[in-house]
Write a protein that binds this DNA or RNA. Structure first.
Length: 279
DNA sequence: CTCCGAGTTGCACCCCTGGA
DNA sequence: TCCAGGGGTGCAACTCGGAG
């Protein structure tokens, strides 16, 4: 995701109590910010791992599925940590009159590694934020303002519910790890014909029970989750390989071309070809 | 005009979903 | 746990547009 900046819509800074300053994701390389960044930032580490070096603090290691809230103007540097995998880092920078009090409210979550229980959901919110802004320009910042508020609140909620989950594990042996294993299976095989029955059996649940557990944990059906994964991968492939054909993208996702185009258009409102031409 | 890639549409199958 | 219905998915045939 190429980052999008609010720069050209400066009047919105006066109107919106919370606004998205910049949003994007990419393979992260070494970056120094001795003066800090002018807006608050929420980082999401998706794969690989990296270190945040923040003045006056011990180094912070971000592993896959973790997040970091970094206040504005905090001098820092970040770089990939020894890993064979690229560090896939998403970020959303936000500011506004309400941002300061929001961060104060969340002060226990600032400058600390946050293990996000519903990481993929938060990541998809980041991506939809990027999609929203990249496709709709100024109009979208109003909607983006609502969404960034929602993201920070769900981060807060995730930390609270995480504690509940941890309690469950110690007292009664929660089924959560089995569900996570099933999700890993989905991640490993999303580009194949994946039967929910098999995933459920692998996790040790009946398909119906697995479905119910999945929806309550991830807020969406397994089907929606897999489709989201595929669409996300599709945008990645289209951006990374400008010469790639729509057919081979569909093939890489394990989808039939016509169905892929149908779903892509339904998800993003434009065909894969038009998307590729725009990016 | 032909070729090719992209996109659309209709149809059939069957599996997922969600209510009971 | 069961089961009916909706919708996900694949296939085939088609149109469209651009390039040569």
């Amino acid at each position: 995701m190429m980052p999008f900046l609010l720069a050209e819509f400066t009047n919105l800074e006066e109107i919106l109590p919370l606004y998205v300053y910049c949003v994007g994701s990419h393979e992260q390389k070494h970056l120094e910010r001795p003066e800090g960044y002018p807006a608050h930032q929420l980082f999401l580490s998706r794969s690989g791992q990296g270190i945040f070096r923040i003045q006056g603090h011990a180094d912070i290691l971000l592993t896959p599925g973790s997040a970091l809230l970094l206040p504005a103007n905090q001098p820092h540097a970040y770089f990939p940590y020894e890993s064979t995998e690229n560090w896939d880092l998403g970020f959303v920078a936000f500011d506004g009159k309400a941002a300061k009090s929001l961060l104060e409210q969340m002060n226990k979550l600032v400058l600390t590694v946050l293990q996000v229980p519903n990481f993929e959901l938060l990541w998809s919110q980041l991506e939809s934020l990027w999609q929203l802004i990249s496709l709709n320009g100024e109009q979208a910042y109003w909607e983006a303002s609502k969404r960034i508020y929602g993201m920070t609140i769900s981060l807060l909620e995730g930390q609270a519910s995480d504690k509940k989950i941890l309690k469950g594990v110690t007292s009664s042996g929660s089924p959560q790890p089995a569900l996570q294993a099933a999700v890993k299976l989905i991640h490993d095989h999303y580009n194949e014909r994946l039967l929910l029955t098999n995933v459920a059996r692998a996790a040790g649940y009946s398909p119906q029970h697995f479905h119910r557990l999945f929806v309550s944990s991830y807020g969406m059906t397994p089907q929606q989750y897999i489709l989201q994964l595929r669409m996300r991968r599709a945008t990645q492939l289209l951006q990374e390989n400008p010469s790639i054909t729509v057919e081979s993208v569909a093939e890489k996702l394990g989808m039939e071309t016509s169905y892929f185009i149908r779903m892509f258009k339904r998800t993003y409102g434009l065909t894969p070809k038009k998307y590729k031409d725009q990016s």
